[in-house]
Simulated scan of single mutants.
Amino acid sequence: MLYETVARAEEILGVNIEELALAARRAPVKAKGAKPRTRRRGAPREDYVMEPVYWDAGTARLLPRLIKGRTRGPVFVTHRKPSPGKVVSRRDVCPNTGLVRLSYGQARALLDAHTAVGGVAGTGWDLHEYRHSGLTHLGEAGASLPMLMAKSRHKKPENVRRYFHPSAEAIAEVTSLLAPGDSRR
């Protein structure tokens, strides 16, 4: 889901099941730096401007298996219930199972454990690498800078450019456009 949405891990981990539009393959997320909505007289409200993220077939196939018939609560949950002394927001607890929302640290540790090289902790993938590789692959496929900015919800072009690292094959392919006799010139 991180790869296909090109979203930040915190945004995806904050999504609840009831917010998912499974048929439309989208969900609203509270984006980084989201501004609170305000009333006419300037009194802040508790809700934020939400921005949609979109996914494709891979995530669409896996989400039903992940939520396993649950209809409310966090999409990503831990494997255990909160300890008796732990104070947890009602939004962060699945009402069906009592399991707690997966935190960024827990997600990072799980991903590292399952992708570690030779079983050595700290050598696995990072959650943010999915965002980087998604943007890179979209750029290599020919997505324009404005489209990459819209997909990743970046406000400045220079912030998107640092994620885009074209492969040697992509650079060779674009170089072939300059070949003599190319009808596209």
Rank of each mutant, 00 (worst) to 15 (best):
A24Q: 14
G134T: 11
A113P: 03
N96E: 12
G139W: 02
K156Q: 08
K68N: 05
L135C: 07
M1C: 14
L177M: 12
P166D: 10
T59A: 12
A24S: 05
E158I: 00
A141L: 11
A170C: 12
T123R: 03
A179I: 07
A43L: 15
S167Q: 03
R162A: 10
V100Y: 01
A21M: 08
P180Q: 07
L145T: 15
P157D: 14
R39K: 13
L13H: 01
L62F: 11
H128V: 11
A168F: 14
V15W: 01
P95S: 09
V15A: 03
V160K: 01
L102T: 00
M147E: 10
A141P: 08
R184P: 13
A179W: 13
E10L: 01
A24T: 10
R185S: 11
G98R: 08
R80A: 12
L145W: 06
A107Y: 00
D182M: 12
G33H: 12
P95N: 12
A24G: 05
A109T: 05
E11Q: 01
K35D: 11
G118E: 05
V174M: 08
E46K: 02
A113T: 00
G85P: 00
L135R: 13
T115P: 09
P84H: 13
R184K: 15
R40M: 04
G58M: 01
T136P: 05
R45L: 06
V174Q: 15
G124S: 12
R162P: 05
G118Y: 07
V87A: 09
P74S: 00
V77S: 07
G105C: 05
Y163W: 04
I171V: 15
M149R: 12
L127S: 01
N16M: 04
D126E: 13
R131Y: 11
A150N: 04
P84N: 05
V120C: 00
A121K: 13
A9P: 03
D47W: 04
W55H: 02
G69W: 03
V15Y: 03
P180F: 02
L148N: 00
V120A: 09
D92A: 02
